[in-house]
Computed example of a mutant assay.
Amino acid sequence: MDTKTVVFELPDELNAASPPERRGIRRDHVKLLVLDRQTGHRSHAHFHQLGEYVQPGDLLVLNASRTIPCVLYGVWRRSGAVMAARVEIRLARRLNGAAWEALAVDATVEAGDTFEFSPALSAVAEGTSVKPLIRIVFSLEGAALMDQIYAWAEPVRYEYIRQPWELDYYQTVYASVPGSVEMPSAGRAFSWELLFKLQRSGVRIAYVQLHTGLSYIPESGGHPDPTYNFEQFEVPAETIEAIKQTMQRGGKVIAVGTTVVRALESSVDASREPVAMSGWTNLMINRTTPLQVVNGLISGFHEPEASHLELLSAFVDPDMLYDAYREAIELGYLWHEFGDMNLII
């Protein structure tokens, strides 16, 4: 089966509209579907039972990027005239201390247009970036800019989230470096208790950093072409050393999230050896991509026809993936950042 045919109908009730904690369960008690990437065999558990499926000597690699609020509302002006009293600007990618790529929702912005977000914060549009994104330059930069963003912006939420949730709900427990405009949600189900339990059992933990951009662009018809989706990443030397030791000892390198896969598979040299690296990646991974570093994946459940399904097909045959997703729907697994989890190993 071609990955483009991994299409399925997702019932609305399976869109997780609220965090598990607001549904009366702990974050590490969401459901877990375990998929054997070789045989297609499926098992069902809860995430706090992860230790039953990973082995001593395996390495879990987590994304330490912390979610920032990225949705700003402000007055939109052109040549001094008010174009809209309230326009929504979604930050997509930080370019430098003052400039961002952003999405102006339901607004056709021109170079020179201005936005007033607060008495202390405004921005000017410099023009289009990769359509439909625009480049904006704020009146502040660095820490002063981030202070205003935290004071006035909200976390991005899509139509299946019916009410606003506080920023804390969009964080993993171990996130430490602010920069992601969408939560690296594959790690949300981890609690410190579970991480410590795994470490005591002999599972190793390492970290990378990849700041996620917007995954959904309404004006472009949905998910953007990953080849234009540059994201900033860093894979430190200590993580590379842990990966090499794991490989030498026959353990599995398990990425917690598609962001970690992109970061690790971007950090290889000409001889296909993992190396410490930082920069920007637009690596597009699909069924034809030979994985050099990662051989296991923890992920949430992805929407029909999402580009993430292409990445998952590098781990498991699309037919097996389709069967697993069909079973997950039948058993009432929940989708998206507040939903249930999938281990492919």
Rank of each mutant, 00 (worst) to 15 (best):
V6M: 15
E13L: 09
L14N: 15
L14M: 10
A16Q: 02
P20I: 14
H29V: 03
V30I: 12
V30T: 14
L32R: 12
R37P: 08
T39G: 10
A45N: 08
H46A: 15
F47T: 02
H48E: 14
Q49T: 04
L50I: 10
G51M: 09
P56M: 13
C70R: 02
V71N: 15
V71Y: 04
L72Y: 03
R77C: 11
A84T: 11
V87F: 00
R94I: 06
N96L: 03
A99K: 11
E101Y: 04
E116L: 01
E116D: 06
P119K: 12
A125C: 15
A125L: 05
E126F: 10
T128C: 06
L133D: 04
V137A: 05
F138C: 11
E141V: 09
G142Q: 09
M146V: 06
W152N: 13
P155K: 10
Y160R: 12
E166Q: 14
Y174L: 08
Y174F: 15
E182P: 06
E182V: 10
P184E: 00
F190W: 13
E193N: 14
L195V: 13
F196Q: 14
G221T: 00
G221D: 02
F230I: 05
F230G: 05
Q248N: 09
K252D: 11
I254R: 02
A255Y: 03
V256A: 03
V256C: 13
G257S: 05
R262L: 04
A276H: 05
S278A: 14
W280G: 03
T281M: 01
I285Q: 01
P290L: 08
V294F: 02
V294K: 02
N295Y: 06
I298H: 00
G300C: 01
L309C: 03
L312Y: 06
S313R: 01
S313H: 07
V316K: 02
